[in-house]
């Protein structure tokens, strides 16, 4: 769980969040609306080059994250490749479908390049920077505060939960299926009580420091690099250009 968050904080593009958000969201849009061949393929290539050589994400990490949704892709596409029909006389018929194959190809290519554009964002921009941007574009305050609090809590809870599971498993709490359910359910319940307790303790800690119901944090004002920005615009237009020339 920390893999993506860690790299978002230590990659080479860490100090250009706005530009990277623009670059990757533009690429995502291109992957969604251009014909997959060559549009999506170009997006995939661009993202790979950007992530590996621009942001200096190690190839092993990049491809590992890229392949995370592979199961969904395989299972979902299986349904696309075959066609089914039901007839009173012939009964259920399952057949390999050429048209379905074509759809599957399009969808797989589009998905992989869209995922690549997305992980360029998630691997290079930490959530805190996205929250800063959300605040600037006036996303409702309640949502932002909820996101901030959940971000603050989830790593703490993850740690608590991992230690609960470890403590149970060294006492053979996961020896068989029934015990596994028993142990897991009590771990979940304990996590809930610990979570509520944490929230109360945080509240009294904040209260004693003059908490008024608002959590203010200091945001670093970042200079937007115009060179980076021009690079991003150029990349988008080159992909658009090549796509229009080749079709």
């Amino acid at each position: 769980m920390r893999l993506i968050d860690t790299w978002a904080n230590i990659n080479n593009w860490r100090h250009h969040p706005i530009e990277v958000i623009y670059l990757s969201m533009g690429l995502l849009l291109l992957a969604m609306i251009l014909p997959p061949m060559p549009g999506a393929a170009l997006v995939l290539l661009t993202v790979t080059l950007c992530a590996l050589f621009g942001a200096r994400i190690p190839p092993f990490i990049f491809f590992r994250v890229l392949l995370l949704p592979l199961t969904f892709l395989l299972v979902g596409s299986l349904a696309l490749v075959f066609s089914v029909s039901f007839d009173q006389s012939t009964g259920l018929e399952i057949a390999f479908s050429d048209q379905g194959m074509q759809t599957a190809k399009t969808v797989i290519l589009r998905s992989i390049s869209a995922v690549s554009a997305l992980i360029l964002l998630t691997l290079t921009v930490p959530l805190t920077e996205i929250i800063t941007l959300m605040r600037r574009v006036r996303v409702p305050n309640a949502l932002i505060e909820l996101i901030e609090l959940m971000y603050r809590f989830l790593f703490i809870f993850d740690e608590i939960f991992a230690s609960l599971l470890k403590a149970q498993s060294v006492r053979l709490g996961y020896r068989n299926l029934w015990l596994s359910y028993r142990s897991l359910s009590s771990a979940v319940a304990v996590l809930f009580f610990r979570a509520m307790d944490r929230a109360r303790r945080l509240e009294s800690g904040l209260e004693s420091r003059g908490y008024s119901g608002e959590l203010r944090v200091l945001n670093v004002r970042r200079k937007i690099s115009s060179r980076f920005f021009i690079f991003a615009v150029l990349v988008h237009f080159i992909i658009l250009g090549i796509t229009f020339i080749t079709i």
Partner: peptide, 18 residues
Amino acid sequence: NKEAKLLLGASGGFAFVL
């Protein structure tokens, strides 16, 4: 309620871990 805000955040963190 100031406390409710933090409890809501904690509930969200709990839901995510789950």
